[in-house]
Simulated assay, not measured.
Amino acid sequence: MSLTKGQNVLIKDHVKLGENITIGNNVIIYEGVEIGDNVVIQDNVVIGKQPARAKNSILPEVGQLPPTVIGSGCTIGTSSIIYANARLENDVFVADLATIRERVTVGERTIVGRGVAIENDCTIGSKCKLETNSYITAYSTLEDFVFIAPYVVTTNDNYMARSKERFDKFKGVTIKKGGRVGANSTILPGRVIEEDGTVAAASVVTRDVQSEDLVVGSPARKLRNVPEDQLLRNQ
């Protein structure tokens, strides 16, 4: 095993490291984490953190979660946090200050941009691009080749933290293969963006977006079809 590491690195018990690993300064890798070959972990990263639960949280108590798995060829940027029971497939790039919560999977060659937050229980596909400071709410699914522009916000609570009725009705968003969302857009709980559906910048998505439709506005409505040369099948 070839390992290069900086100062103040803490690697806890039963961690599995592949070949050619580079670890920066002040990194913590918790128990049982598995890391593949040719991985770069930059300064101040935390991998395998167990989640903490607020006293008034509606989330159920959970025991010790299984370890984090980081695939080969990944880069984890400065001050990022990857929680326990997250899984990154090969060649994922995580930029500085990103957070990837528990029970999240990220597909191969996906880019998780600076300051991006992916909340618990999300599935992110392969070759996606989540740009700076976008927010992926809990219980969401993004399929392959999804593009999320900066400052996109997704939501999962129609009751905005009021009424016990909300407890069993949390529902994240679904963005199917090739879906795209423009900067500063908001997607309301449970909405589905079908394959190659596209949301223009600063839109508010209050209802599902059909395949190959371009929607715009607040509330977002169809403007036209996505141009043929922009469709995923024509790339």
Rank of each mutant, 00 (worst) to 15 (best):
A86Q: 06
T75G: 05
R114K: 02
V106R: 08
T132H: 02
R166Y: 06
Y151Q: 12
V112P: 00
K176G: 05
S163W: 10
E165K: 13
C122V: 08
I100H: 03
R109S: 14
A138H: 15
L88A: 13
R101Q: 14
S140C: 05
V106F: 10
K177V: 03
K127S: 08
Y139I: 03
G179F: 15
V153N: 15
G115L: 00
S163R: 13
I124W: 01
F170Q: 12
V112Y: 03
V116G: 02
S79G: 00
E143Y: 06
T137K: 03
K129H: 07
A95L: 01
T132F: 02
S80A: 14
T99F: 11
I111R: 01
D157E: 14
K169F: 04
K176V: 04
Y83V: 00
Y139P: 02
Y139V: 03
D121R: 13
K127R: 14
N156F: 09
R166A: 15
T174C: 13
L97S: 03
D168K: 03
V92D: 04
E108Q: 14
C122K: 04
V112H: 00
A117E: 08
A86R: 10
T155R: 11
F93V: 14
T186L: 10
G73Q: 10
G73K: 09
I175L: 15
I118P: 01
E119V: 03
I136Y: 04
T174P: 05
P189S: 09
T186W: 08
S185G: 14
A138L: 01
A84Y: 12
Y135V: 06
